[in-house]
Design a protein around this nucleic acid. Structure first.
Lengths: 194, 194, 194, 194
DNA sequence: TATGAATGAGTGTTCATTCAT
DNA sequence: TATGAATGAACACTCATTCAT
């Protein structure tokens, strides 16, 4: 009897060590040898499960994206129904400890750069970008006009990414100040101007 | 004695084709062969002028950074003396056509990722980050308390980077909406709240 | 699982073609390409088994040294127990056909030169030198005073190397006259002076 | 008026730094760049005066050989007319401080190895070998039969080279014990056996 | 299902050589 | 006479991929 779920275990394990390897040496230096050695498997296993290196990287990206959206979904469910709370939930999820750590952040950065030249990755990025935008837009729309909501959503999305990026680059992301800055932005957008 | 002054010409030329190559195939696929072929020179010229590939990439990054700060300096000089105008000038420079184009943007993205694992590049990034922050901070300070100015500066810096990043990823940066969003942020920060 | 035991076969094969290549073109011109081509393998195999080129060369040197000491051990066992016979056995082994042939001699010469600037090789040389000296010294000591034995051992060791060197340089080593000269030296050292 | 003897000065200077460079990094790592840089000249100067790198190396070898024979000639002239003194003079010259030092010894070693595969160098070696042999042979012949003289000359030549080689490899040549060993050999050869 | 030996194209880098000045 | 910028072939080495087991 073949081990049940062996496949899933392997997939998860390999994606995990891929993240760790990218964290430690960077995507450019992450060779199949270094990844599989850390997983204590042979290099051949990658082509077996993922076809080739790109397949592994794409699966890793999908994994990271799914984790982000699971976190967002979780936070949104737990949030109060008002727009402000919903928006805050999205921000909160983005600065979760699950999202703000070495392996995930460095992988994001690497994939941002990589996606400029690989169609598959770019596609995944676009889906993610649009999804976040429409999510934010929908919530802002409940209190703002459509154009205003779109502007607010664009701004907030950019602010989240920017705070995220600067946190990653600084090496020591401030997990308190960053979401605070985004919350403030939400408040400013929602609050009626004089 | 061979041609004098060739040095500067060569340096500029090689940095230029490096940017173009990164634009077209990405940093990962930008080999010395592809760069020098585009420059119609030999590969040996790189070690002659830059020591090695890393030297070329570092020089390229320095070039991009210098260009950004020249643009900022130029805009600031032309701006009115009031804080809002100065801040707008910084934003404007960041969304200059010189900064918002394929070669420069893709290079920035690539170096953001690369700088996570190369000390030299990280150092350059940090200098740039701090410089932008203190620039913004100084201007906000003229109308806000110190803590408020710091928060505003952090937020605006993140927003600029975020808008920039999303523009790069989308492939078609909106050079009108992006600065507008940053201008609005400035206004919100400077305007007295109820 | 791929063929088992290939490792030892490959190692021996690669060391062998390394000797042949050094024989034909010299150490300076012995590139990995020329070596592996002769072995009908790929260049990558060297890094696979020896790490890098230096690893291959070091392994080759170790192989040559081991062969020499195996020959010496063999001859000594077959020799009569008296010092003169033992000393002759050492000389004999050094001028064995296994030691006196193009590949081995040219490799020795090359490594002598190379060992001046590579710590690993120098270490191997020193071990070999000391080993030969103490071997000779022990045998001379059975018939001479300690200081005399040391002088005799030094002289014989130098004579062996010298005969060996001149044989290599001449291109046509005289495998009869050379050991004869060393035998005479042994006799002169052991024979009581007037 | 062109500088007189500029040519000779350059030649000597370049040969000198070649020896120093081989001493410090070895023949394999002695590039034209490293040699000419030490001489504070351009690389082009080599092709100007020596044609190419091989020309420089050959000239260096000739220089070393000439120095050796000048030393031998000097010592022989100063020696008493008897064979033993003449033979001792040759030995003495070989262990002169001019011959026993890093640059010269490492260069000799390197050229021994190199001469196995370069016709020009091998030719120079052969001339040197034959010259030393006939020199020794002529002196031994005055007291020994022709065959005995030939054997003695071969042995002494080998002993000299061997002592020399072992001195070079050990890194700290014993400039007293080495010639002493050769003197003893001369005495043994010349002294009438019982 | 899993291995890892073997490949070989591709990489950055070195360096002797050339040549316009 | 002398320079050093420029070349480009050659090099050691890397690494994704393949495949017999």
């Amino acid at each position: 009897m073949p081990k049940l779920g062996m496949r899933e275990v392997r997939l998860a394990q390999l994606i995990d060590v891929t993240l760790l390897t990218i964290d430690q040496v960077g995507l450019g230096a992450a060779t199949l040898a270094s990844v599989t050695q850390r997983a204590s498997t042979s290099t051949g296993i990658v082509s077996h499960y993922f076809g080739d290196k790109d397949g592994l990287l794409e699966a890793t990206m999908r994994h990271v994206l799914r984790d982000l959206w699971l976190a967002i979904a979780r936070r949104r469910k737990a949030a109060k129904p008002d727009p402000r709370s919903k928006l805050r939930a999205v921000v909160m999820a983005n600065f979760d400890v699950e999202q703000v750590n070495g392996p995930v952040m460095k992988t994001w950065l690497a994939f941002w750069s990589e996606s400029m030249h690989k169609a598959e990755l770019r596609c995944l990025q676009h889906v993610n970008t649009r999804r976040l935008f429409s999510n934010l837009c929908a919530n802002f729309s409940r209190e703002l006009t459509k154009p205003a909501a779109r502007r607010a959503a664009s701004g907030l999305a950019a602010l989240i990414d920017g705070l995220w990026l600067r946190g990653a680059l600084s090496g020591e992301p401030d997990t308190k100040a960053a979401p605070k800055s985004a919350y403030d932005y939400i408040d400013l957008m929602l609050e009626p101007r004089a």
